[in-house]
Design a protein around this nucleic acid. Sequence first.
RNA 1: UCGGACGGUGCUCCU
Length: 315
Amino acid sequence: ERWVSLLVCGFCRAGLVCEAYFLLSLLLDKGFFPNICIYNPILFGLCRSSQSSKLFVVFGSLLKGGLRFNDHTFVSLIYAYCKEGLYKEACLVLYKMQAYGFKPNVFCYTTIIKFLCDARGIEEAMDMLKIMVAEGCDPDLVTYNVILRALCSHNRVYEACKFLGIMSRNGFSPDKFTYSALAGGMLQARQIELANGFLHHILTKGFDVDVPICNICIHMLCQQYNSSVALSLVKALMEKGFIPSNVTYNTILNGFCKEQKLDEALELFNYCDWVGNKPDSLSFNIIMSAACKLRNSTVIHKVLHRMESEGIQLN
RNA sequence: UCGGACGGUGCUCCU
């Protein structure tokens, strides 16, 4: 069972949910009776890869097979319903799980709040927050981070500040997720001045700075048509030990494309040493859509050829 | 009693 668990988790971590499930089904045929801990990573893998319908099927078979769920299992079900936009069903799980002896926890509520923020607006998310507190479940830092990002991205920075106050009164101090949630939200709301000021504060006042926060700075530069500056900044930071991620490269790549600087985009794209990274399907989408917009068939063919040679599928 | 699993949040394209 230990080995199976390790293998299944390994597959899921690598994004190979089908393989994980295949392995498990082989063992089931041999009479292996798995623990729910083996199913949960598969359920979450299906959620993340937007295969909710498969999750519902697996869930049904779990019910039939009489396997005992645990609290993780219910979170995956809620996650799947939310991803499908089925909030009523997601909320129903909050009640149904109690019949199995599980009280909805902060993971359950935060999952719903996150999806409400993204799809239905903040007010409904706030209502859910009230329900959660009324039910005796306290929000944690993740819950607050979700709400902070939503507030900032809807131009409600003032309320976000009030929430920061509530947070600290409840004993939570901001972490690096909080910073990037705030900055990313401001940027999404096109509040460049605010974002700029905030990021400057973060960068200069000795806060914990990580790659996503740097990426937000880079994105901000690119939004202002300063992609060349952004690239120089990355190179300068690399001298100081900064290790860019694929997001870093894709952000700048997209910046160049929006500035219609296809040559510079291609130069970056062809730059062999992405410090351990390689263009991914998103990079190819960016460069391909730019080439198409500019009706540059030479580049289109080159990119297609390179995708073929690197084994990247058209998505 | 203790221990054990990718359970929910931030950055890039398109939606």
